[in-house]
Simulated assay, not measured.
Amino acid sequence: MDVADLSPAQARGRFRTGERVPTAGWCRGWTQANLIAVPARLRYELLLFAHQNPQACPVLDVGEPGAWSTALFAGDLRTDLPGYRLYRDGRPVADLDEVVEEWREDLVPFLIGCSFTFERALLAAGVPVRHLEAGTNVPMYITDVPCQASGSLSGPLVVSMRPVPEELVKTAVAVSGHYPRVHGAPVHAGDPAAIGIRDLARPDFGDPVEVRADEVPLFWACGVTPQAVIMASGVEYAIGHLPGHMAILDVRDEDYRVA
């Protein structure tokens, strides 16, 4: 079966049994989300941080301390994503297939919106999505744009990039702008150096993609931003998804479209 035709439950079952792959293009029409789980003492700081940085950190769902499922994710957050990253004292210390043993009773899981949610809409409008064409992970970059700090949490904005033909830039902006709860319109277009990106061929997360002569790189706020904040803030313990290896929710993409 084409992975685009899988249900969220079918995809989660494959990840639970060991499939490790970026999820762009999986489960057509179903929403994907970033995972970040932090100690309960930081949950309100992270909620405030997300409120102050809504384009980068649009919160879709939050679990109770120790919970490994939420209202929008009926699976097991410890096993049903295709990859995890463990942080200690702000440092990524391990990339893991599952985190059953690492999932502490005080961890609060946050599910953050993902720009994969509007990629089908971009395609329907005739806007190419290069990483889907190439079958690779989306490229993501740590910028020099600071997020608004909240308590002990601060750090840089992370963006994802999609190259778009110049004549379709306005279309891409308009289409993605209909999805404000999953990052919405781009935060930057054009010169990557203007936001501190030195080399598009060397993303901080994900895979590089070709940018052709007639294309403009468009940059969307990215839900990996909380992981950059974990690193910049030296948070003592956290679990995130492996960038591009998302949680697939039991809610439809179109539920996040606004007129």
Rank of each mutant, 00 (worst) to 15 (best):
G177D: 07
Q227P: 00
P192E: 04
A232T: 09
R202I: 02
I195H: 13
A193L: 15
A172T: 08
A238V: 04
F219G: 12
S176Q: 04
G184S: 14
H188Y: 02
A232I: 08
A185G: 06
H188F: 02
V175G: 02
P243H: 12
W220R: 11
H241V: 10
Q227S: 09
G206M: 10
I248P: 00
E215C: 00
D214G: 10
V235N: 04
V173F: 10
G206V: 10
G196R: 13
E215Y: 00
A247W: 12
C222E: 12
G196K: 13
M246S: 04
A228D: 06
D191N: 15
P217Q: 10
L200N: 07
D250N: 06
D199L: 05
H241P: 10
G244T: 07
C222R: 09
A232F: 04
D191E: 15
G196C: 14
V229G: 00
I230A: 11
I248F: 01
E215S: 00
H245C: 15
C222P: 02
G240Y: 01
I230G: 09
V182Q: 00
E236G: 07
A213S: 15
E236T: 10
M231K: 14
F205D: 05
L249C: 06
Y237G: 09
F205C: 07
A172R: 03
R181K: 11
P217F: 07
P203K: 12
V187S: 06
P180E: 00
V235M: 05
V187W: 02
G177N: 09
E215G: 00
G206L: 11
A194P: 03
A185L: 06
I195M: 12
E210Y: 02
F219W: 13
P203I: 10
V187I: 11
P192M: 05
P180Y: 01
P192S: 06
S233T: 12
P208C: 12
V182P: 00
L200F: 11
R212W: 10
L200I: 06
A172H: 04
A201V: 01
E210C: 07
G184T: 15
A221H: 07
V175M: 08
S233A: 12
D214K: 12
A172Y: 05
E210L: 06
V224G: 06
R212H: 14
G190H: 14
V187R: 05
T225F: 01
P203F: 08
